[in-house]
Simulated scan of single mutants.
Amino acid sequence: MTIQNRRIFASILFVLISFVCVGQVDLPPPSPPSPPPGFPIDGGVIFGVLIAIFYGVRKILFSSGNSNK
Score class of each variant (00 low, 15 high):
residue 20 V to R: 03
residue 29 P to T: 07
residue 46 I to E: 10
residue 51 I to Y: 11
residue 49 V to I: 07
residue 23 G to I: 05
residue 5 N to S: 11
residue 1 M to L: 09
residue 1 M to T: 11
residue 8 I to A: 13
residue 57 V to W: 06
residue 34 S to F: 03
residue 40 P to M: 06
residue 15 V to T: 00
residue 12 I to W: 04
residue 42 D to L: 14
residue 49 V to R: 01
residue 61 L to H: 08
residue 37 P to S: 07
residue 51 I to K: 05
residue 44 G to I: 09
residue 59 K to D: 10
residue 40 P to C: 08
residue 25 V to A: 08
residue 19 F to L: 05
residue 20 V to E: 04
residue 22 V to S: 07
residue 66 N to M: 13
residue 27 L to M: 09
residue 59 K to E: 15
residue 53 I to L: 15
residue 63 S to V: 10
residue 66 N to H: 10
residue 50 L to M: 05
residue 26 D to V: 10
residue 16 L to N: 02
residue 3 I to V: 00
residue 15 V to F: 00
residue 9 F to Q: 07
residue 28 P to Q: 06
residue 24 Q to A: 15
residue 27 L to A: 09
residue 45 V to M: 15
residue 26 D to Q: 15
residue 19 F to W: 03
residue 65 G to C: 13
residue 3 I to P: 06
residue 60 I to F: 14
residue 41 I to W: 08
residue 17 I to T: 07
residue 34 S to I: 02
residue 54 F to R: 13
residue 32 P to N: 02
residue 4 Q to F: 10
residue 64 S to P: 11
residue 53 I to A: 10
residue 7 R to Q: 07
residue 23 G to W: 06
residue 18 S to D: 05
residue 18 S to H: 02
residue 54 F to D: 14
residue 38 G to E: 04
residue 54 F to S: 15
residue 29 P to E: 09
residue 58 R to H: 13
residue 2 T to L: 06
residue 37 P to L: 04
residue 66 N to Y: 14
residue 61 L to A: 11
residue 65 G to S: 15
residue 9 F to L: 09
residue 40 P to R: 08
residue 37 P to Q: 07
residue 21 C to I: 12
residue 33 P to S: 03
residue 24 Q to E: 11
residue 38 G to L: 01
residue 35 P to L: 03
residue 9 F to R: 04
residue 36 P to R: 01
residue 52 A to E: 05
residue 8 I to G: 03
residue 30 P to N: 05
residue 62 F to W: 12
residue 8 I to M: 06
residue 50 L to C: 04
residue 42 D to A: 14
residue 42 D to I: 11
residue 38 G to P: 05
residue 18 S to A: 12
residue 35 P to D: 06
residue 57 V to L: 13
residue 23 G to H: 05
residue 57 V to T: 08
residue 60 I to A: 15
residue 63 S to W: 13
residue 68 N to V: 15
residue 40 P to T: 07
residue 63 S to D: 12
residue 43 G to W: 11
residue 45 V to R: 05
residue 16 L to V: 01
residue 23 G to V: 05
residue 17 I to G: 02
residue 24 Q to L: 15
residue 35 P to K: 05
